[in-house]
Simulated scan of single mutants.
Amino acid sequence: MSNLTYIYQKNVSEIKLLDTLNYTLEEFKTNPQGCYPGFNKKNMVVSSEKYDYPCIDYSGELRNKTREERILEGEIELLQDGEYVADGKIITVPAPENLLKKVWDKELHIWKESATEEEQKTEWFNRINSWKPKVLEGPFRYLHSDGKTYHQKLRVGKDDTLLSTAIQALIRNSEIPSIEWAFDDENNSVFMTLEDLRKLQDTGFVWTQCVYEAERELKAMKADFTKNINFFKETAIKHLDKYKITVFKTKQ
């Protein structure tokens, strides 16, 4: 609790701090005139709080003015980027997501792009390059000879190597008709013949091609910073329709 009491003067237009007393508020209330001989409760109000921007609200409570109240009273320097005053109200304009370096035009009340074309292109390419390895990993869809669709990841140095090793193993051991293969689907482990494995490898190759085609398409378009990795995936999937592998048809 404050050991000081603040005396404010109530005017029609504003509240002003008149004096600071070295008394607690309780001490002041016990003997107002003794603490401050000129005190007049009709045009003065006391508080244990010091307010830099005092006001009395509609309920009669003494408090600090809000930032919004101060702005509407003329302190427009308090406006933040994306704000302006119109018709006695503070209007907020959300910053567009497609701007790389957003700058607020205080005169026109609009957001502008401050990044150069080269900066935008560099950032757009950086985002595409960061998405590509994740999209390449998949998982992509594979239609097995049993008529079911499974999902296979393509982690470089792991899944592709394992698949090549499995194919070579069946080629060298013709007496082994198939091997058990675990897909990324939970509890989906199926037997794969040499033909199945080669189709899986071909499917992975096609998926890789589509990802690279999607990369080229995105890098040829104008930078759009509203897009994310899902847009990259959707673009890659669209390229799949031109390949004659049933499982890749986007209508499925």
Rank of each mutant, 00 (worst) to 15 (best):
L162N: 09
L78F: 15
A86P: 06
I71S: 04
F232P: 03
E118Y: 07
E119Q: 13
F225P: 06
T203W: 01
W124A: 15
K29N: 08
C210Y: 01
D202N: 09
C35H: 02
K132R: 10
L240I: 03
D160P: 07
F183L: 02
D87L: 09
L143C: 07
K10Y: 01
P54D: 03
N11I: 07
V156F: 06
L100G: 06
A220M: 14
T24F: 00
W181G: 02
W124L: 14
E195Q: 14
L62I: 15
G204E: 00
S2Q: 05
E186D: 15
R141C: 04
Y51Q: 05
N22V: 00
I179C: 05
E118N: 15
F225V: 09
R172V: 07
R155E: 14
Y51H: 12
A223R: 05
I90W: 05
G88S: 14
E123W: 07
N22C: 02
K251F: 13
Q120M: 15
D185H: 04
E137T: 07
I71D: 06
N187M: 08
N228F: 11
I128Y: 03
K102V: 08
D202R: 08
L136E: 12
L72V: 12
L18V: 02
L143P: 04
L18S: 00
N126H: 10
N188G: 07
I229C: 06
K148L: 10
A115Y: 14
S59Q: 14
K244G: 07
W111N: 08
R67F: 06
I91Y: 09
N43C: 08
M1T: 13
V156E: 15
I176M: 15
L143T: 04
E195T: 09
S13Y: 06
F183Q: 00
L200V: 02
F28N: 01
H109V: 08
G88I: 13
I56L: 03
N43T: 10
P32I: 01
